[in-house]
Amino acid sequence: MTTITEMDRKILRALMEDGRQPNTQLAETVGLSPSQCWQRVRRLEEAGIIAGYHARLNQELMGVPEIVLVEITLERNEGYQLEQIGQTLAELPEVLEMHVTSGEFDLFIKIAVSGTRGYEEFLKNKLYRISGIRHSRSIFSLRCFKNEMSYVPHG
């Protein structure tokens, strides 16, 4: 396991703000030489702490502005495998996130759709065609106050 220093945390926070910034700018932001900064970033990447770099898309401009949170309950007595259903859901492009949960329902997914009609199409043509799903309950997100991929805990 890689030890994460306070300097590593500074680098990670700066990369979360702008993952495309040049190494020289990142080094200046965190107070390191460019070579020291580059070495630390490489070490964090190799250790898997930095799992990748992503572009955050504007879902509204992409034509799928509605976010729907869906709770899914699976059939219990017919031998359906959570892994199979999870993989099937993960392959659907509308599914942005998927979590196995504890409590009343088994899976929680976050999807992007084009309004109620888009959601109806997703239900009819995709979700309801997956064997082993007993019940789903939907919640439309009215507004998002925060949308982060991860966070850097304090050391």
Rank of each mutant, 00 (worst) to 15 (best):
S114G: 08
K124E: 13
R117T: 12
T116K: 09
S35Y: 07
L15W: 03
I139D: 06
K110F: 09
N58R: 11
Q39I: 08
R20D: 11
M98Y: 12
L69S: 09
E104R: 13
T88L: 12
Y53F: 12
S131M: 12
I72M: 06
L57F: 15
T3K: 07
I67D: 08
R76F: 14
A47W: 04
G79I: 04
L92T: 05
G118V: 09
K146N: 10
L32Y: 02
E60F: 11
G19I: 01
C144R: 15
Q39P: 01
R43D: 00
D18Y: 01
V30T: 05
L142Q: 14
F122L: 10
N58M: 09
I50M: 03
I85G: 01
V41D: 00
P153F: 00
Q39V: 03
L107N: 05
I111K: 01
I50A: 01
G52F: 08
V100F: 10
L26P: 01
R56S: 10
E148C: 03
A112I: 05
V100C: 10
L74F: 08
L142G: 15
C37M: 00
Q25N: 10
A90M: 14
R129L: 06
S141G: 13
T116Y: 08
A47V: 04
K124Q: 09
V68T: 04
D18W: 03
I85H: 02
F108T: 10
T101W: 08
V68Q: 02
E91D: 15
I49S: 00
V30F: 01
N58F: 11
L82H: 04
K126V: 05
G132K: 07
G103F: 11
I67F: 07
L92C: 09
E94N: 09
H99I: 11
M1H: 14
C144I: 15
V64S: 08
L142N: 14
E60M: 10
P153T: 02
E6I: 02
S131V: 06
A51F: 07
G79F: 10
T88N: 10
P34K: 11
L44Y: 00
L74I: 12
R20A: 13
F145G: 15
A51K: 11
I139Y: 14
E121H: 08
G48R: 05
R42C: 03
I130N: 09
L107S: 07
L57E: 13
I50E: 03
P34C: 09
W38S: 00
E120A: 02
V41G: 01
I85K: 00
K146E: 05
E91F: 10
P93T: 03
E46K: 12
